[in-house]
Design a protein around this nucleic acid. Structure first.
Length: 824
RNA sequence: GCCGAAGUGGCGGAACUGGCAGACGCAGCAGACUCAAAAUCUGCCGGGGCAACACCCGUGUGGGUUCAAUUCCCUCCUUCGGCACCA
């Protein structure tokens, strides 16, 4: 018998598939289409580990399955190649990041091929190539022209390790999302995308996509819509007679009669102007301390609120009451107006603050059967209720009071309805070299002007040194000959914008590029996009829930508004694979020395075994640990398939016979149905189990009668099994298919259907319960009626034991499942 | 604190829409083959109990609904993930 030599078989078929472009996509087709996409991978120098394969293997199974089902499948791959790690490695090795990136992408591609994946490599893209980033820049200009890109000087998150700013989404618990370094604040002039303009649509359209509820919730929370009002408080003029006012944002205007002080964020621009001389030293010291705190410090001081009185007083526009103005770092400059009216009677944070500093706590809302106690906070004090101590508004409900107050405020010009979002605008500038240059020019005469479309791309200059300065200035700023340019408007001397774009810009439109990856005249071909998009199935880890997935949804909506595309959501269905931990239960990482690479596993067991094992180990979406022993089960199975299939080939040489094989028709039809259903439900683990069960059945059958191997029915069933196994284990099935004498690839075989009539067994086993406890089973005809079931159940010896001398109160029969006898 | 997901053998997990809990695999034990080992094959494999059978217990906890609950409802506990002074 021929040996199972996966070292020889797998590379041979991989080369052949590549040479024959076996998995090419048709540009147009009568077939139904399926766009199956993996997250845009960043080609890191470490290469792939087996955890990454948990993404690529299932999408490959899906793609292969749908091709066999007669779909035109787009299953592409490319590289999100701009980014810090390549740049940092390049600096360390004193090389160009372009070289590093080329080396890394080649390695990724080699590893993906090693797994037997079926990507259409003719559509490979690379976001760091000018043919690609030219269009990323083009989109920047599109946003600019639509008023969605602007420059603003402000305090921003700064990662001192990466030496660049970060967007809000990219700071996780006060640390840089990429390297984990605590972030700092830096005041810089930066480019932003106005994603907040789309906040409502980004929240609402989540209802239209088939995504995990978890991800949708995270996005909704991140967007964080809150409806309220801006209210203007005039300040009592200081000695210099200057007139100031402060605007606060509140969602609880109904509680304004309980506002006993106003709080400004320490960074609030008014702080310096309104602070009285007596308070100045104290206020300045406080501002200095809170500026010096990292975000982590601020979070950790959560329990104890601190603040300082400014000496200034504000006037409640609804009551004319004079209340003190404080500063405190529990008020954030970045949200709302950076100032609040404090209602300690009905807000837990204000309550804690007021208690600490002896400020008045006043009840202005009542609820039936709730007594109010100013010495201890209760969460229900924040509930809506009926107004008291609120003058003319007394007796109104919260909602009615709110509406009346907004009206009054609007008429008199001191209040305005307003909606705020937790989400901030997307900070897009980066002070690093390895990214797409922002295509803008600063002209002393014309101001900041866009580079005309026909002058794109603004090429990233090739230079020797591009180490980040750390000053908040991009390394490109040091390249004088690149910075010096002419103004596209007046032709005079001008300078280029030196910041590059956040890498998330590149991945905000890449799914469109795959439809027409080599088009030189536009970012994508509208016809191709209309045909392929939206992506039918998008698969990746959950870590990009509010970064990439929010950004690309935003760009899609901008494109839709610009009339470039006809859909509003890029990814119709999203699936997150569970994380694969190492054998020690820890995340795989170089520093923990627990990384398992596909290279070593393929060397030891072959790609088909690796694929089967990764699919089998746990449900797709669930986290699971790698098991060094567990993979041997998958390998044993693969070897059993080989052995039995080879024996079947050998048996066919002696001529075939027409003898029926007991239960085979039932089993093979059951197998086809289970595999089909499991793939469509993403239940790869039970699909693999079904193959194993089927093989256990075959082994037993052969053991009892070797003769079945030469029967036509067995031979046919073996072929069908190989066909449905092909998406899971593409190499071994291709090899066996060839050994069966087929010239065409197994991966071009049509997906088999199953015969429902073959799934019916003539005799089935039914459990018999007495008082809900199983006491035995009985064999009955599959079409027995309820009455027949009841009668034969009552006739069983093991039932009589329980019924004798007792009253049978009730008998419940469930066809094909169970009979339950209830006795007294 | 808030939001979300999940708790099933020694381990990974299975169980359609309430109908025989533990499929499939790993590990373990026993046996076959072998001088031996590996590989392979066969059998056993939740706990208690018994000579054996019967039987009892068992899906995080406690309760409920039902002829019947891993599945539905309520309570609590634990773990993981997300957000975290958002006014």
């Amino acid at each position: 018998m021929k040996e199972y030599d996966f070292h020889e078989i797998e590379p041979r078929w991989q080369d052949r598939w590549e040479a024959y472009k076996a998995y090419g996509t048709e540009d147009t087709s009568e077939k139904p289409k399926l766009y199956c996409l993996d997250y845009f991978p960043y080609p890191s120098g470490d290469g792939l580990h087996v955890g990454h394969c948990r993404n690529y293997i299932p999408t490959d199974v899906i793609s292969r399955y749908y091709r066999m089902k007669g779909y035109n499948v787009l299953h592409p791959m490319g590289w999100d190649a701009f980014g810090l790690p390549a740049e940092n490695e390049a600096i360390r090795l004193k090389k160009n990041p372009r070289e590093i990136t080329q080396k890394n992408t080649a390695n990724f591609k080699r590893q993906l091929k090693l797994l037997g994946t079926s990507y259409d490599w003719d559509r490979e893209i690379n976001s760091s190539e000018p043919e690609y980033y030219r269009w990323t820049q083009w989109f920047f200009l599109l946003l600019y022209k639509r008023g969605l890109a602007y420059q603003k000087e402000s305090e921003q998150w700064w990662c001192p390790n990466c030496k660049t700013v970060l967007a809000n989404e990219q700071v996780i618990e006060g640390r840089c999302w990429r390297c984990g370094t605590p972030v700092e604040k830096k005041k810089l002039n930066q480019w932003f995308f106005k994603i907040t303009d789309y906040a409502d649509r980004l929240a609402d359209d989540l209802d239209t996509v088939d995504w995990p509820e978890r991800i949708k919730t995270m996005q909704r929370n991140w967007i964080g819509k809150s409806v309220g009002a801006d209210v203007v408080f005039e300040l009592i003029p200081g000695r210099d007679g200057s007139a100031h006012s402060v605007t606060v944002f509140t969602t609880r205007l109904d509680t304004i009669m309980g506002a006993t002080f106003v709080v400004l964020a320490p960074e609030h621009p008014l702080v310096g102007e309104i602070t009285t001389e007596a308070q100045r030293a104290e206020v300045e010291a406080y501002v200095a301390v809170s500026r010096g705190k990292t975000e982590i410090d601020r979070l950790s001081t959560e329990k104890e609120k601190t603040g300082v009185f400014t000496g200034a007083f504000a006037v409640n526009p609804y009551s004319g009451e004079k209340i003190p103005v404080w500063i405190a770092d529990y008020v954030l400059m970045g949200y709302g107006t950076g100032a609040i009216m404090a209602v300690p009677g009905h807000d837990g944070r204000d309550f804690a603050f007021a208690q600490k500093y002896g400020l008045e706590i006043r009840q202005v809302i009542t609820w039936p059967q709730v007594s109010y106690d100013t010495s201890a906070w209760q969460d229900r004090y924040a509930d809506r209720g009926t107004l008291v101590h609120s003058g003319a508004f007394d007796g109104l409900g919260s909602d009615a009071a709110y509406a009346t107050m907004v009206e009054t405020g609007k008429e008199q010009g001191f209040a305005q309805p307003r909606t705020n979002y937790h989400m901030r605008d997307w900070l897009i500038s980066r002070q690093r070299y390895w990214g797409a240059p922002i295509p803008m020019v600063h002209c002393p005469v014309c101001g900041t002007v866009p580079v005309p479309d026909d002058q794109l791309p603004v090429l990233l200059p090739d230079v020797d040194s591009y180490e980040p300065s750390g000053t908040g200035e991009s390394p490109l700023a040091r390249i004088k000959e690149w910075v010096q340019t002419t103004c596209p408007v007046c032709g005079g001397p001008a300078t280029r914008e030196t910041d590059t774009m956040d890498g998330f810009a590149c991945s905000s439109w890449y799914e469109l590029r795959y439809t027409s990856p080599h088009l030189a005249t536009a970012p994508f071909d509208r016809k191709a996009v209309d045909y392929w998009l939206p992506v039918d199935l998008y698969v990746g880890g959950a870590e990009h829930a509010v970064m990439h997935l929010l950004y690309s949804r935003f760009w899609t909506k901008v494109m839709y508004d610009a009339g470039l595309i006809g859909f509003k959501e890029p990814f119709a269905r999203l699936m997150n694979q569970g994380m694969l931990l190492s054998y020690d239960g820890q995340k795989m990482s170089k520093s923990r020395h627990n990384v398992i690479t596909p290279d070593e596993v393929v060397e030891q067991y072959g790609a088909d075994t690796l694929r089967l094992y990764e699919l089998f180990m746990a449900p797709f979406e669930q986290e699971v640990s790698w098991s060094k022993e567990g993979i041997s089960g998958a390998h044993r199975f693969i070897k059993r398939v080989w052995e039995l299939a080879q024996r079947t080939v050998d048996a066919s040489r002696g001529g075939l016979i027409d003898a029926p094989v007991p239960k085979l028709a039932l089993q093979i039809n059951k197998l086809v149905r289970r595999i089909t259903e499991d793939i469509e439900r993403f239940k790869f683990n039970t699909a693999v189990a079904a193959f194993m069960e089927y093989f256990n059945f075959l082994s037993e059958t052969v053991r009892s009668d070797e003769g079945v191997l030469s029967s036509r029915e067995w031979q046919e069933a073996m072929r069908t099994m190989l066909v449905v196994l092909a998406p899971f284990a593409p190499h071994i099935t291709e090899e066996l298919w060839k050994d069966y004498g087929n010239a065409e690839s197994i991966h071009r075989q049509p997906w088999p259907s199953w015969d429902e009539s073959k799934l019916v067994e003539s005799e089935i086993e039914v459990a018999v319960q007495v008082n809900g406890k199983v006491r035995g089973t009985m064999l009955v005809s599959f079409d027995s009626s309820d009455d027949e079931l009841k009668a034969s159940a009552l006739a069983q010896d093991f039932v009589r034991r329980y019924t004798e001398g007792r009253i049978v109160k009730r008998v419940v029969a469930i066809k094909g499942k169970v009979v339950n006898i209830v006795v007294q």
